[in-house]
Design a protein around this nucleic acid. Structure first.
Length: 278
DNA sequence: ACCCAGGTGGCTT
DNA sequence: AAGCCACATGGG
């Protein structure tokens, strides 16, 4: 079969990173653990096998230059400093950060995040992954084959925009089926949201199928807005446990996050989310 | 048979 | 503005 890997990239001196934490913390859906500590998956259009040994990150990829992967893994951000800052004032956060020390917020493609998190609503992570893989297999360009597994790029917006409700329903997308072509068309018209965080948020909320929670996930994972604080059922659990909120007091939780977590809300949310979900 | 999952749209007060 | 409830699907 065609060899999928075209080149190898090595990054040395990579601190505060653990591939399991990065790929299992719920921010992305297309990576799978190998039996040797590696992770293999697709980011946008490119295949990648990642292995972290000590502080050296080795990537075998099908495309994308050094800068692309440096950005994707957020290697320019000092997570040590962030963790010291957010852990200092709060014991609950300190425990989560200690346990989930290797999380990094990937800088994923906006459209991929947009579609993925529309699928995520009222759904669980294994099924979200299955839905996305089925969609990529059906409508994404084949990148190649490795170890008997075929890898597919994330589908183009132009293609998904032309599909019918039934095309998604047959992939078991359920009631979300008609959100995806609509969202793809809107994305093609409007492009990636720009401006202030509040402007981006307002624009995302105009999509059918995007409410406050999904909008914040897209801001955090697809638009680099690391202050965004998505509140789902797990976040409600830890906000209740740690700070005594009633489970349905979303407004109170939002206010607390804004006032106490501020610009690091997204990081804090992600450490605690992964810690509590286990 | 229920309840839950990285919730939201739409309708009714 | 706030309170219901239906919405597909699959696992526990």
């Amino acid at each position: 079969m065609n060899e999928i890997i075209t080149h190898r990239l090595e990054f040395t001196g990579v601190c505060d990173m653990n591939l399991t934490h990065v790929f299992e913390c719920g921010q992305c859906f297309r990576w799978t653990a190998g039996d040797d500590g590696s992770y293999t998956g697709v980011a946008g259009q490119y295949f990648c096998r990642a292995l972290l040994t000590g502080t050296t990150l080795v990537l075998d990829v099908s495309g994308g230059d050094r800068e692309f992967w440096y950005d994707y893994f957020d290697l320019g951000t000092d997570y040590g400093r962030i963790k010291r800052t957010i852990g200092a004032a709060d014991k609950g956060i300190a425990a989560a950060v200690e346990h989930c020390y290797g999380i990094r917020i990937l800088q994923q493609d906006f459209y991929e995040v947009l579609i993925s998190f529309i699928i995520s609503q009222n759904n669980n992570i294994p099924r979200i992954k299955a839905c996305i893989e089925a969609m990529c297999r059906e409508y994404g360009k084949e990148i190649g084959c490795r170890g008997g597994i075929e890898y597919y790029a994330f589908p183009e917006a132009e293609l998904l925009a032309e599909l019918s409700h039934e095309s998604f329903a047959s992939l078991k997308f359920g009631y979300r089926s008609d959100y995806l072509p609509k969202a793809s068309r809107r994305f093609l018209e409007r492009g990636k949201p720009r401006g202030t965080a509040e402007e981006k948020r307002r624009e995302l909320l105009e999509y059918t199928g995007i409410g406050p929670k999904v909008a914040n996930c897209i801001m955090l994972f697809g638009l680099g807005e690391v202050s965004a604080f998505p509140i789902d059922t797990w976040v409600r659990t830890f906000m209740s446990d740690l700070y005594g909120f009633a489970k349905d007091d979303i407004k109170g939780m939002e206010k607390y996050a804004k006032e106490h977590f501020g610009k690091y809300g997204g990081y804090i949310q992600q450490y605690l989310f992964y810690y509590y979900r286990g």
